[in-house]
Every structure is written in C-alpha cells, then in structure tokens.
Simulated scan of single mutants.
Amino acid sequence: MGNRFICMKKKEANENGSRSKRMVRSQRKMLSEEEFLHRQALSMALHQHQLSQRFEGSMSRRIGSTSFRRRNLPDDLLSNEKQPPDFLEKIKTKNFILIHGEGFGAWCWYKTIALLEESGLFPTAFDLTGSGIDLTDTNSVATLAEYSKPLVDYLRGLPEDEKVILVGHSSGGACISYALEHFPQKISKAIFVCATMVSNGQRPFDVFAEELGSAEHFMKESKFLIYGNGKDKPPTGFMFEKEQMKGLYFNQSPAKDVALAMVSMRPIPLGPIMEKLSLTPENYGSGRRFYIQTLDDRALSPDVQEKLVRENPPEGVFKIKGSDHSPFLAKPQSLHKILIEIAQIP
C-alpha cells in the first residue's frame, strides 16, 4: 500500500512537472509571438517615420528620395511579371509626381512609390497645403493656388528642359489641371486617377454632386462641415465620419491600409474644391491627358467617371476592375501597370 502511494505521488509529480513544462513552453511561445509582433510593429513604425521625413523648402514632403528595396516589400507588392529589359528606353520622362486627393496625404502612395522605384523610375509625392504632415491649418486654405502651392513651387523650380508626368487622385485632379494651365511646357503627361477632370468654369465639388448633393445644399445642410472661423461664418472645411469614409473610399482596400488611412486622413479644405477653374485651350487644352477609371468606386461612381471622360475627352482611358476609390491601396499592381503603359506611349 505504501509503495503504491509513493508511486502515485511520483506519477502525480511527473504529471505536474510535465504540465509545468508545457505551461513554460506555452508562455515562452506567447512571449516569442508577442516579441515578434512588437518587433513587427516597431519596424512598421520606423518605416512610417522614414516615409514622413520633412524636406527643406516649401515642399512638405518628397518621398521620392526614400529608397525601397525589394526584400522589404510585402509579397502582394512584388510583381510576378518581369518588365522587358528595354522598357525603360521607351520611357522618355521618368519623373512621376504623385498628387493625393481630398483628405489624403503623400502617405497614400507608398505602394505606388515602391513599385515605380523598383521599375527604375523616380516618383515624388507631395503633401498639399494643410494635408498629410503639413502643419498648415486646413481651415486657412482658401484657394486652389494655396492648396497646390507645393506642386506649383516644385514645377516652377524645374529646369527649362525637364518635364514630369503628373498623377492626380480624386480632387487632386483639379491640382494637376491647374498645373497644366500654368506650366504646360513642364508636363509631359497628366494622368487622372478616378479624379475630378473638370472642364473650364467647373468646380471640383460639382463632380461629387451625385453623392453629396448640390454645393449650395451641402454648404447649408451637411453634418460634416467644419466652421473654423466660427458658426456665424461660412464653413471652412469638412470631414466624413470614419464609417462613411470606409464605405466611400475603401470598400475594396485591405484592412491594414484602411487602418492606416483612418489615422492619417485629415479635414478637407472647402475653398479649393468650391473654386471654378479657368482653363484655356492654349495651355490646358494642349496637354496630354489620360484617365484611369475605377469600376467599384462608391465615391466617384463609374457612371460619373464615364461622364467626365465623355464631356472632357482625354487622349486615353484605362479601367481597373475591382478597385474602390483608392486604387493605390486596393489594386496597386493594376495601377502600376497602367502608369507604366501610359509612360511608354510615344
């Protein structure tokens, strides 16, 4: 009886010991996973910090100088298709200037920047005034000229014999239209990505009227308006609630990119998008324009985009299936392929 009791105690001790070892291993595994997640988060934070470095001059941010190496790219960014060895020879203008849309910042182009650099091209992304990490109060940005100042300053400083390819997203289309009017000789091609490609005398806001209602109604009734100068003064900006933004802009984008957007989006200045553009046939009309349509877009519907290209015909129209209003997040490879294709057009 005594021996059996001793054996039972030994067995129990062994079981307790095994259980303790399993618990220790489990805890070590959890700590290891936590450490991995911590390191991953730290790496992402450092990467974002590198992206948001401020450069001198009026340029809020020039991401084009940040280097991306292939080994650092997520798998979904790596292209399975090898570019033909001579494709760069077909591209006369290798400098891409990426202009974000309303509420966004230069940060939204991070996948496009990586892909263009991997292809041997030279992308530069700006924070427009009051956007991204630019410190200007959004409520103080009253005109399209003020809003577009980082782009204008850059183009004004370009050497006479140098040209760029402009890429504008959403209301950033108004900025590249403005640039086409004032610097036609410095722009090789202008690419409108589900953008407000307005006609002469039209306001960028008018393009969104189907979704937001008339400008007059919006200015009086919208619950998203911001009154930076006081309730007794006209509104200065607006910003959608997070759930509305997700539904309008990011209905096909990856969850991680939506999370990034939710902490990065900023209020939209009203002045620039309510301003009528003055565009002439001699300047704006002489530019080479291309349009990229997004076919699962809830902010600027495919029908509205079709109407834009019908009323103000560009040189070429391209379409991305399954993309929301943010193709640089939802369909970066498809967007990249089209940008390269347009760049190669003689």
Rank of each mutant, 00 (worst) to 15 (best):
Gly130Glu: 01
Ser131Cys: 08
Ser131Thr: 00
Ser131Gly: 06
Ser131Met: 09
Gly132Lys: 05
Gly132Cys: 03
Ile133Thr: 11
Ile133Phe: 13
Ile133Asp: 08
Asp134Glu: 02
Asp134Val: 03
Asp134Met: 05
Leu135Met: 15
Leu135Tyr: 14
Leu135Phe: 15
Leu135Cys: 15
Thr136Met: 13
Thr136Tyr: 13
Thr136Cys: 11
Thr136Gly: 03
Thr136Leu: 13
Asp137Arg: 07
Asp137Phe: 06
Asp137Ile: 01
Asp137Val: 04
Asp137Glu: 06
Thr138Glu: 02
Thr138Gly: 02
Thr138Val: 09
Thr138Trp: 08
Thr138Leu: 07
Asn139Ser: 12
Asn139Ala: 11
Ser140Pro: 09
Ser140Gln: 10
Ser140Ala: 09
Ser140Asn: 09
Val141Met: 07
Val141Phe: 08
Val141Gly: 03
Ala142Gly: 12
Ala142Cys: 14
Ala142Thr: 14
Thr143Arg: 13
Thr143Asn: 10
Thr143Met: 11
Thr143Leu: 11
Thr143Gln: 10
Thr143Cys: 10
Leu144Ile: 10
Leu144Gln: 12
Leu144Pro: 11
Leu144Arg: 13
Leu144Tyr: 10
Leu144Thr: 08
Ala145His: 13
Ala145Glu: 11
Ala145Cys: 11
Ala145Leu: 11
Ala145Asn: 12
Glu146Met: 09
Glu146Lys: 11
Glu146Trp: 09
Glu146Leu: 08
Glu146Ala: 06
Glu146Gln: 10
Tyr147His: 12
Tyr147Cys: 08
Tyr147Met: 09
Ser148Asn: 10
Ser148Phe: 11
Ser148Ile: 06
Ser148Val: 04
Lys149Arg: 10
Lys149Glu: 06
Lys149Met: 07
Lys149His: 07
Pro150Ser: 03
Pro150Lys: 03
Pro150His: 00
Pro150Asn: 02
Pro150Cys: 00
Pro150Phe: 02
Pro150Gly: 04
Leu151Tyr: 05
Leu151Val: 04
Leu151Arg: 05
Leu151Pro: 08
Val152Leu: 14
Val152Ala: 14
Val152Pro: 13
Val152Lys: 13
Val152Glu: 13
Asp153Gly: 00
Asp153Lys: 04
Tyr154Thr: 01
Tyr154Asn: 01
Tyr154Asp: 03
Tyr154Leu: 04
Tyr154Ala: 02
Tyr154Gln: 01
Leu155Ser: 07
Leu155Gln: 09
Leu155Gly: 04
Leu155His: 07
Leu155Asp: 11
Leu155Ile: 09
Leu155Val: 08
Leu155Arg: 06
Leu155Ala: 08
Leu155Trp: 11
Arg156Asp: 15
Arg156Thr: 15
Arg156Asn: 15
Arg156Phe: 15
Gly157Asn: 15
Gly157Thr: 14
Gly157Tyr: 12
Gly157Glu: 13
Leu158Asn: 08
Leu158Thr: 08
Leu158Phe: 10
Leu158Val: 09
Leu158Gly: 08
Leu158Ser: 06
Leu158Tyr: 10
Leu158Asp: 09
Leu158Met: 09
Pro159Lys: 00
Pro159Arg: 01
Pro159Ile: 02
Pro159Thr: 00
Pro159Ser: 05
Pro159Val: 01
